[in-house]
């Protein structure tokens, strides 16, 4: 049994970290006004908020924790309360039924804080834009610091985005 479990993790499955020279990371970083690392050091607490997603983004955010992406090696961790968070990672077009909950989650997060919009729905409402039940993208409710595109963004794209937030940008 022990062999089965240990062999399942060999060779090391963890993906190489995207370097600063990664063009996609550099492009995302250039959109960030102030790098979180400069403000907080190398540790970011992330609170995820589903504001109307189809659950596709959630699956890929979950995958960030698996042995391949191993988010915690970069100092990121998911926390259970916005009061413990530095970053809100928001998915979905913001539904009118979730707008107040998102606003209150944002208000409960202490500053300095960053908001990352994950996926095309969070960017501008995506395929749900124009619906009577949708407020729009995340930026229509709270200020957004970074948009990670994709439907859903792959874990690699999410990782690049979070690293860009940590390292990138100039103010």
């Amino acid at each position: 049994m022990r062999n089965t479990l240990l062999l399942g993790l060999r060779p090391p499955l963890t993906e190489k970290a995207p370097g600063l020279e990664d063009p996609e990371l550099a492009a995302l970083a250039s959109t960030v006004k102030e790098a979180a690392e400069r403000a907080l050091g190398r540790s970011l607490a992330i609170r995820h908020v589903d504001a109307g997603s189809c659950n596709g983004c959630e699956l890929e955010i979950h995958a960030l924790g698996n042995a391949f992406y191993d988010l915690e090696r970069f100092g990121f961790r998911f926390v259970a309360s916005p009061r413990h968070a530095d970053v809100l990672l928001v998915t979905g077009p913001v539904t009118l039924n979730m707008r107040e909950a998102l606003q209150r989650t944002y208000d409960a997060t202490p500053g300095p804080k960053w908001v990352v919009a994950s996926g095309v729905c969070a960017a501008d409402g995506g395929v749900f834009a124009g619906s009577y039940a949708i407020a729009g993208g995340v930026a229509s409710v709270v200020p957004v610091d970074l948009v990670i595109p994709g439907c859903p963004p792959s874990p690699a794209a999410l990782l690049r985005g979070l690293l860009a937030l940590m390292r990138g940008g100039s103010k």
């Binding site: 589903d50 109307g52 997603s53 979905g92 077009p93 539904t95 039924n97 979730m98 909950a101 395929v127 749900f128 124009g130 619906s131 009577y132 039940a133 949708i134």
Partner: peptide
């Protein structure tokens, strides 16, 4: 429930 109602039927 109903929090993530996006209006799919009308879209």
């Amino acid at each position: 429930l109903g929090y993530v109602h996006k209006g799919v039927d009308r879209l």
